[in-house]
């Protein structure tokens, strides 16, 4: 059977090539592709200057006071300067979010205290659109001590400092910690993070930036 040898060799060689290719493919696809966000801090983002204007003092009296409504949010370190729209609840009782056409702006939940009044004010923004970054894309880059400003209808500014940044799986979202009462003037900035579930078209986690008003 002299003519069988080349066929056997060919079969062996082709088999080995397929094994090597299959193994390489398997190994290369085990790690998800890197996200667009660079590893090192906020490189590549033009930081904004701190806003100018009268900065109001935190509540000095423990008696309730009314403060002007918030109109814009400025986070110099991550280049955020956006107007604030107002947000309510969905029919299901969850927090409403800005529509896709307004993914570049953030929104304040009108059922939460106004920024600068006693309590936990809630501001929400998208981390991305269907094809690129949105207003809160860089939120995970914030760290303890970073400054966040809210401008109010009367032109005054409230200055907050970040106290912590937490990631929560949405199935175990701590609503009391995030939305519950606080005894001082605080802010929570919320966006999505983690794995994107392509079946439900939703991210599986939320990132919450906690900040407290400073004088």
């Amino acid at each position: 059977m002299p003519n069988r040898r080349p066929a056997a060799l060919l079969s062996l060689a082709a088999g080995l090539v397929v094994i090597v290719g299959g193994t390489a493919g398997l190994l290369l696809t085990r790690h998800p592709a890197q996200a667009l966000r660079p590893v090192a801090g906020v490189a590549g983002v033009a930081a904004l200057p701190a806003p100018t204007g009268p900065i109001v003092a935190p509540p000095q009296s423990p008696e309730p006071r009314s403060v002007p409504r918030p109109v814009s949010l400025i986070i110099p370190l991550i280049g955020v300067n956006t107007q604030l729209i107002t947000l309510g609840l969905t029919s299901g009782g969850a927090l409403a979010v800005p529509p896709l056409s307004e993914a570049s702006v953030a929104g304040w939940y009108t059922g939460s205290p106004r920024p600068g009044a006693i309590g936990s004010a809630i501001i929400v923004g998208h981390n991305d659109t269907t094809n690129g970054p949105a207003v809160f894309y860089r939120l995970p880059d914030l760290r303890h001590g970073d400054k966040v400003y809210v401008k109010r209808a009367d032109g005054t500014l409230v200055e907050f400092r970040v106290t912590s940044v937490q990631t929560y799986v949405k199935d175990h979202f701590p609503t009391q910690t995030v939305y519950g009462p606080t005894p001082d003037a605080e802010l929570r900035l919320i966006t999505c993070d983690g794995t994107f579930d392509s079946a439900t078209r939703h991210y599986l986690s939320n990132i919450v930036v906690y900040a407290t008003e400073v004088s």
């Binding site: 996200a35 667009l36 966000r37 969850a94 927090l95 979010v97 896709l100 993914a103 929400v124 923004g125 998208h126 981390n127 991305d128 659109t129 269907t130 094809n131 690129g132 970054p133 949105a134 809160f136 894309y137 929560y168 949405k170 979202f173 919320i190 966006t191 999505c192 994107f196 392509s198 078209r201 939703h202 991210y203 986690s205 939320n206």
Partner: peptide, 9 residues
């Protein structure tokens, strides 16, 4: 939680 993000990134 909050449903922010459309998955583009």
């Amino acid at each position: 939680g909050v449903s922010t993000g459309f998955g583009g990134t």
